[in-house]
């Protein structure tokens, strides 16, 4: 069983109804992420992996089953400022500068941004955007925008960090750079991380455990431990042992 401050889903089911169609998005999904661990969820499109995250965030409610984030209900955890989140597209507010975008979670949590100016600056520095504090999102590249989203996810010092394909829109080269940086940032903050991704190598490089899901109905088919030592370095991407793990995951993904 996971420590009380991790992520725990037990027997979660969710069905969507609309326009005469019924989609069973999740059937009896259980997941336990210990405190301080890094878990990746991987699966084909429509397998419900994003739904798992939205339920854990309190954006959707499960039809049945229970969800605990650091021992609390999702919405309570969110209101207490325990969670941080980064989505697939950066979802920046185009009219706000980089700094003001990073401040959004603080404003929602009714914390005064001026009291946290040092942290905001530190997070922007951490993701390598020092000097761009007053730029508008429209003036940044895709990779820079995504890094703003990461800084925004970290600014509240979350105990639990959710990421839904945070680098999905980036090219392969930039993506690897970001993976290395994310690992460094995560190690510095010591939070419990849950990453939803399409990329097998990304999942293996970052996670302690990879959860493989299948679609129709969305369900967990296997949880694979990733044994590599930390900190992991870019050469790992070409290590044969790394590829063996990746191949195994690919087999499970394709119903092997």
């Amino acid at each position: 069983m996971a420590a009380p401050d991790g992520i725990v889903l037990e027997g979660v089911s969710k069905t969507f109804r609309g326009r005469g169609k019924v989609v069973e998005a999740l059937r009896d999904v259980s997941l336990a992420c210990p405190s301080g661990s890094f878990t990746a969820i991987i699966g084909p499109s429509g397998c419900g992996k994003s739904t798992v995250m939205r339920i854990a965030l309190g954006l959707e409610t499960a039809d049945s089953g229970s969800v605990r984030i650091a021992g609390e209900a999702p919405m309570e955890a969110a209101r207490a400022g325990i969670t941080g989140v980064a989505f697939q597209d950066a979802a920046l507010l185009p009219w706000r500068s980089v700094r003001r975008n990073v401040e959004v979670p603080l404003e929602v949590l009714r914390r005064r941004p001026s009291d946290h100016a040092a942290e905001v600056a530190a997070m922007i520095g951490l993701v390598g955007l020092g000097g761009f504090e007053n730029s508008l999102p429209g003036e940044l590249s895709g990779g820079m925008r995504q890094r703003v989203a990461i800084a925004r996810a970290l600014v509240t010092h979350p105990q639990v960090l959710f990421m839904d394909e945070p680098f999905g829109a980036l090219d392969q080269i930039l993506r690897r750079q970001m993976n290395v940086e994310l690992q460094r940032i995560w190690a510095e903050t010591g939070s419990t991380a849950l990453l939803v991704t399409h990329g097998i190598d990304e999942a293996v490089f970052l996670a302690d455990r990879v959860v493989v899901m299948h679609a129709a109905p969305g369900r967990v088919v296997e949880v694979i431990d990733v044994p590599f030592e930390r900190p992991r370095r870019p050469p790992l991407f070409s290590d044969p042992a790394f590829h063996r793990v990746c191949d195994h995951i690919a087999e499970v993904l394709h119903g092997g």
Binding site: L57, M75, F87, Q88, L93, V104, V108
Partner: peptide
């Protein structure tokens, strides 16, 4: 309005 940005605010208990 950008539904992702709205989700973000809600994810922080907004």
């Amino acid at each position: 309005a950008d539904s992702r940005a709205a989700d973000l605010v809600r994810a922080y208990g907004g």
